[in-house]
Computed example of a mutant assay.
Amino acid sequence: MNSPSLEPITLTGHAQKEAWQNKVLPPVEQIGTEVWSIPVPFPGNPMRYTLSYLLLGDGDAVLIDPGWDTDAGLDHLTAGLRQAGLGLTDLTGIVATHFHPDHLGMAARLRMASGAWVALGDQEVRRRTASDDHDLVLRIDREELTLWGVPADRLAEVAMDLPGLIHLHNLADPDLRLTDGALVPAKGLDLRVVHTPGHSPGHICLVDEPRGLIFSGDHVLPRISPHIALDLPGPANPLAEYYASLELIAFEDEMEVCPAHEYRFTGMQRRVAQLLEHNRQRSVEVLQVLEDHRPATIWDIAQHLTWSRGWKSLQAFSLRLAVSETASHIAYLRAQGHDIDVPVTDPRPAVR
């Protein structure tokens, strides 16, 4: 039996859950008064789609997390807007919960088509893509991965490549920066910004109290634990920031949570308890690996940890995520006072 703090969440997005299980796109849904959920394909990724949310106000129409930029994605988004009685030119605002291409990707194209403003949290930064020296950025990325123990014959597989870097570099810069506690500037909407770092340094959630909705981006998902990476340059202890912002968003348990992936649910407090427990147990596992195997690098630690499909199944970007997640746990444990002699950060100045 589950303890009270780890009770299961309550499913509300039944059609979304069925579509997830059947590995198809979920339907466009009206989920509240003047609120629509529109799936946008996320090609080549196990998450398969981003759930974009359209909120209609008093003459304003705001889209949250417009999704990955493809022609097919634009077609799906346009069709969803049409079901809500709108066209692309009716959009007045676009909010991305964070600077990842499956959330912000379509923003530049939509801004050009509609004239809508684009907004991000005021703490979200480009990090690597702030530099125009792509060769330098790619070299430092490889140096970081080498420091973490990624073998030379796996570097090309795990490291960032030029097309990927250029893709990130071309993502839209925001017109507006949203501060913690501010309201999204749209008539007829009461959408409050909550700064929730962890998955990215400036991730935000959006709370619509009148409608009883929380748009959680990637901060809180119903089934998986969001990836918390140590990225250089970036926050020194992203896992600690994630814990703090999880506690901040778990202010009640009855509002419907609208995540950017998977499906809707209620039970934010219950889900936060699960996520905190999962990550704390992962840190315990890391400490056990350190004791049992005396690993010399982050890579050595990661290959002894439990992964859902096994370490050997991890390839390319998934492998990169596994290594950077392991590094974030080491950074957290060091900050907690554990003496861990495994290199995590390069003492040289980082690229800004």
Rank of each mutant, 00 (worst) to 15 (best):
A152S: 10
A152L: 10
D153K: 11
R154M: 15
R154F: 05
A156Y: 02
E157C: 11
E157F: 00
V158I: 14
D161T: 10
D161L: 08
D161R: 13
D161Q: 12
P163K: 09
L165G: 06
L165K: 11
L171Q: 11
L171G: 12
L171P: 09
A172R: 08
D173R: 14
R177F: 15
R177K: 10
R177D: 03
T179R: 13
D180G: 04
D180F: 05
A182W: 00
P185G: 11
A186L: 01
K187Q: 13
D190A: 13
L191E: 06
R192F: 00
V194M: 14
H195P: 06
H195T: 02
H195I: 01
T196V: 15
P197W: 01
G198A: 07
H199D: 12
S200A: 06
P201N: 11
G202N: 03
C205T: 15
V207D: 03
V207F: 01
P210M: 07
P210E: 08
R211V: 12
G212N: 09
L213D: 09
L213A: 11
I214T: 15
F215C: 11
F215Y: 13
G217H: 12
H219T: 15
H219C: 09
V220Q: 00
V220W: 02
L221G: 03
L221V: 07
L221A: 06
P222N: 08
S225I: 12
S225R: 06
H227W: 08
H227L: 02
I228G: 13
A229I: 00
L232W: 00
L232Y: 03
L232N: 04
P233W: 01
P235D: 14
A236C: 03
N237G: 03
N237L: 02
Y243S: 00
A244F: 13
S245D: 11
E247N: 09
E247L: 15
I249K: 02
A250H: 04
D253H: 02
E254W: 06
V257W: 00
V257L: 08
V257T: 14
C258S: 09
C258R: 07
P259L: 07
E262Q: 09
E262C: 05
Y263Q: 12
Y263T: 13
R264H: 11
F265K: 12
F265M: 11
T266D: 12
T266R: 13
M268A: 12
R270N: 13
A273Q: 11
A273P: 04
A273F: 04
Q274Y: 00
